[in-house]
Design a protein around this nucleic acid. Structure first.
Length: 933
RNA sequence: GGGCGCAUAACUCAGCGGUAGAGUGCGUCCUUCACACGGACGAAGCCGCAGGUUCGAUCCCUGCUGCGCCCA
């Protein structure tokens, strides 16, 4: 038997790498640029992972894109899914600088050029690993078209975009209060600042003495409350509310600064000051606080920076100069106390701004930076979504989108880093003119001086990502690729980069290409641990997709995720984060890529959190094994078939039925993929394969192969070969490896291509809808089910044979059951032929009666019946039916229901009630029979 | 302070204006020749709480409670 060639269990590890190599060798993932290729195209721009990153669960979610891409490819479209890597400015620079630090060096020891060379070397060595890991996940990307955001052609696009925006007045340079990352010593955009909530801090109070105070008018000092005492060195005013009676006598007064030689005014400001908060008086530091900055502008206050780029106090801080800002905080408090100006402190819950990349507390600083003027770009983007040119799915994100874009701030794009696209601005030393040019200039375009200094800053990483959908296709040149593959059809990514990436691509795509870069944006949630917490290294609840694919012992996992914690503590954290893993024993089995993929797409796409459940992955691993074994079974019979691809003639009930169910399943899968409901699409196929194909169709074909006529056998072989081949095609986008492995072993039509990845996706024409077959099968399934329940309730050995009689008044039902006698006998395990009869007549002694709809099921259990259990079950069934009867009766007795509900609902309810009452009658009979046993 | 979302079986999650579903787990029986990674059968839910709309609400609306996220 051919099946003996296959091991009994599916082993993904021995199968998956082989097929990936095969696909790449045959170039099945490559888009066609042949000018004569007229196929419609389908494009998803792949989000380029960071060059520093190693594969995490977020990347594994690219599976959603791959399923859609593979489906499109199987539908015969010219598909482009172009992979790439992002240079990831800050992250990468931080990684390499940390390496240098271990060698006792800084980037300044190397110099800019050598440092960049070093980063490139690092990138070559370890940066591409993630793309290798993506192959493990089966992603069908067009690898020969792989891009890196710092490739020469990408850099050219970036420079072109910058120059054009500058020429159009949309990029400008300005001095503003910006977010400063003290650790990496660069400015950040608003989006790169994250707020840490519920930080336990203190509200510290101290007093400013009023200059020339008159004690008879009131207090001679003004007490302010602050969370940042050290910034008082840069205070240029104290604000009170104009309506606050406590401070009326101080309006217009000056305060003496205790540490620096400066008097600062008391100002009144209803915007900044909340009378109820703190002391009602607010110190104003325009150079280090956004609200204070705005206040300063309103009142014409000086902006005195007291903190330097490294986070230490500068020379303006007088005696505190040189201290780190946090050390300065302590020092200032100590000195205030010594001067008798401290007025105590209160615990205070606050929020802290932190750098997304380095996590250090962000310092507002005044600095000269490059900005993109956003409003002219945002308005067309807003309109494009409103007009439906790009659709955001799920729609709930549209509100967020609208809110952000309508309140958008100008985008700070310069970064004080070395790693990235250096800004193409050249300052003339003699006339100060700013030359912004496509090619490096040799002399100033204004005064002709050859003395030019290039701006040292680089661009925000997201600037180049924003050009991705067209820069990767050759822009600014008019290439065939650009013409063919822009705009893309869909974009699929996490909601966390809706603004960072999606919005900017849409704005820049509209601006430079005059057309939206994609028609749909599909936003998925974040992968979190099984109990819903964000995955983080600190919590030790991260999962590496490769550990799930290849298997891993929990002990090794926790050693990897929390290397510094005691083993039992780390293990406890891990098991708390993954309750289902805690029940598993020592570790994860090698679930394989397909199981992980099926799991990831099984989550509802509208869930904001995807709580990854190891038990669920294991469930899909079993599904792969089920599919594998179903094919093993089939191969024993169909190995010599030569299917034509046409739907086989079917006369046997189960053959007609499975063709009908198959048509439904593939329709559901296709709809699911098209509607971005991969959970529904894959679920339909899962249940089709397991619950219908395996549990009923394969089971019913066994007696055919054992005892059927040659014609029946031939028909069943043809249907089995056809449906199985079709099922593998249908499942391939979700589970590419196991399906390719099995498909290559199955007989298949001669017209099929070399790889399943290129075979046509099945459609309605691959099945045959048959309502009658579905109805008749339902009857059979329910009768068999009831008979089996009776057997099981009485604890019969599975191989024990029982006499079976089915009685029904419905002549059609009798005909169906009679025709399917062989199947029923096999599925129930009957002693002798099943008797099909009309109701009434004597019941053989020792027979248990149950009902399946309108069919009485009589199982002969002479001497085997557990009377008590049978009675118990009978009572339970009766109770359930009577409960339903009460519900239905009440509903139908309600005049309003009958009058107002749609007529078909009323008719349906009446039919249900009638059915229930017939069931009750039979159950009462059955109960009587038990008593007689 | 503003906004968004979630609350359904022990766990993780679907679903839905008309008698509540899946996977895992749990219980019983069984190594029957595709699969014990299996089969058959079964137990298990005030669908968060309180109102409202409706002939009918787990579903729609309002409020509350709890949890999560985003923005300021």
């Amino acid at each position: 038997m051919p099946e003996s060639e296959l091991p009994k269990a599916y082993e993904p590890a021995s199968v998956e790498p082989r097929w990936y190599e095969f696909w790449e060798q045959h170039g099945v993932f490559n888009a066609s640029l042949d000018p004569k290729d007229t196929r419609p195209v389908y494009v998803i721009p792949m989000p380029p992972p960071n060059v520093t990153g190693s594969l995490h669960m977020g990347h594994a979610l690219y599976t959603i894109q791959d399923v859609i891409i593979r489906h499109a490819r199987m539908r015969g479209l010219n598909v482009l899914w172009q992979p790439g890597i992002d240079h990831a400015g800050i992250s990468t620079q931080v990684v390499v600088e940390r390496q240098l630090k271990r060698e006792g060096k800084t980037r300044h020891d190397l110099g800019r050029e050598a440092f960049i060379e070093r980063v490139f070397a690092w990138k070559e060595q370890s940066g591409g690993r993630i793309l290798e890991q993506m192959r493990v996940l089966g992603f069908s990307a067009d690898w020969p078209r792989q891009k890196f955001t710092m490739d020469p052609d990408m850099s050219r696009a970036v420079r072109e975009a910058f120059v054009r925006l500058y020429e159009q007045g949309l990029i400008y340079r300005a001095t503003r209060l910006v977010n400063w990352d003290v650790e990496s010593r660069t400015v950040l955009s608003d989006l790169e600042v994250e707020t840490e909530e519920n930080v336990q801090g203190e509200l510290y109070e101290f007093a400013y003495q009023v200059a020339g105070a008159d004690a008879s008018l009131g207090a001679t000092e003004l007490v302010v409350a602050t969370t940042r005492p050290e910034t008082m060195l840069g205070d240029t005013a104290v604000a009170v509310h104009p309506d606050d009676p406590r401070f009326t006598h101080l309006h217009g007064k000056k305060l003496a600064h205790p540490f620096v030689d400066r008097e600062i005014p008391v100002i009144t400001d209803p915007v900044l000051v909340d009378m109820a908060f703190g002391t009602g008086a607010v110190k104003v530091t325009p150079a280090h606080d956004f609200n204070d900055f705005a206040t300063g502008k309103r009142h014409g206050l000086a902006e005195i920076a007291v903190i330097g780029p490294n986070g230490a106090m500068n020379e303006q801080a007088g005696e505190f100069a040189g201290l780190d800002r946090f050390a300065a905080r302590k020092a200032v408090k100590k000195r205030l106390a010594e001067l008798g100006l401290a007025r105590g402190s209160k615990p205070h819950t606050m929020t802290l701004p932190r750098s997304q990349r380095t996590n250090s507390v962000v310092e507002p600083m005044i600095s000269t930076q490059w900005f993109v003027k956003m409003e002219p770009l945002a308005v067309p983007a807003l309109e494009a979504v409103r007009a439906g040119k790009t659709r955001i799915v799920p729609e709930e994100w549209v509100k967020t989108w609208e809110h952000w874009l309508t309140n958008i701030q100008d985008w700070c794009i310069s970064r004080q880093l070395w790693w990235g696209h250096q800004i193409p601005a050249f300052y003339c030393v003699s006339c100060s003119h700013v030359n912004v040019t496509r090619a490096d200039p040799t002399k100033c375009e204004k005064c002709g001086s050859a003395e030019l200094e290039r701006d040292p800053d680089v661009l925000d990483t997201w600037f180049s990502s924003g050009l991705w959908p067209f820069s990767t296709l050759g822009w600014p040149d008019k290439t065939l690729a650009l013409e063919r593959f822009y705009p893309a059809n869909d974009l699929e990514t996490g909601y966390d980069i809706l603004f960072f990436w999606v919005a900017r691509m849409l704005m820049l795509g509209l601006h430079f290409m005059g057309e939206v870069p994609f028609r749909r944006v599909l936003l998925h949630g974040m992968v979190v641990d099984e109990v819903g917490d964000k995955m983080s290294k600190v919590k030790g609840n991260t999962l590496d997709p490769l550990d799930l694919i290849q298997g891993a012992e929990f002990e090794n996992l926790v050693k990897k995720s929390l290397p510094d914690a005691p083993l039992d503590e780390a293990m406890a954290k891990f098991k708390k984060a993954y309750p289902s893993a805690a029940q598993m024993g020592k570790g994860f089995a090698a679930y394989g890529t397909d199981a992980l993929r099926l799991t990831l797409v099984s989550y509802s796409p509208q869930a904001k959190r995807i709580a990854l459940s190891p038990a669920r992955i294991d469930g899909y691993r079993r599904f792969c094994n089920k599919l594998y074994n179903a094919t093993r079974f089939a191969l024993a019979y169909v190995a010599d078939e030569a299917p034509s691809g046409a739907v086989p003639v079917a006369t046997l009930l189960q053959n007609r039925w499975i063709l009908s169910r198959f048509a439904r399943a593939v329709a559901a899968s296709t709809l699911g993929i098209e509607e971005f409901r991969l959970d529904d699409g894959s679920g339909a196929l899962y249940h089709f394969v397991w619950d219908e194909l395996c549990d009923w169709f394969l089971e019913m074909s066994k007696p055919v192969f054992a005892n059927g006529t040659d014609a029946e056998k031939a028909e069943t072989r043809a249907v089995l070969a056809h449906v199985l081949e079709g099922s593998l095609r249908a499942l391939h986008p979700y589970a590419p490896f196991v399906t390719e492995e099995l498909w290559q072993r199955l007989p298949r039509p001669a017209s099929r291509p070399v790889s399943l990845a290129l075979a046509p996706y099945p459609g309605a024409a691959d099945g045959r809808a048959d309502a009658a077959a579905e109805r008749d099968m339902a009857l059979l399934m329910s009768a068999v089910g009831v008979a089996r329940t009776t057997r099981s309730e009485n604890e019969l050995h599975p191989t024990a044979k029982v006499p079976l009689e089915l009685r029904t008044a419905d002549a059609h039902a009798r005909a169906v059951l009679k025709a399917e006698a062989r199947a029923i006998e096999f599925l129930v395990g009957t002693a002798g032929p099943v008797v099909i009869a009309e109701p009434g007549g004597a019941r053989p002694a020792g027979t248990v009666l149950d009902v399946a709809g309108d069919v009485e099921v009589l199982v002969g259990l002479r001497g085997l019946v557990d009377k008590a259990r049978a009675a118990e079950r009978s009572a339970r069934a009766l109770k359930a039916v009577e409960k339903d009867i009460v519900i239905m009766t009440k509903r139908l007795e309600n005049k309003n229901f009958v009058a107002n509900a749609p007529p078909e609902v009323v008719t349906e309810a009446r039919a249900q009630l009638a059915q229930l009452e017939r069931q009750r009658a039979r159950l009462l009979e059955a109960r009587k029979l038990i008593e007689e046993l």
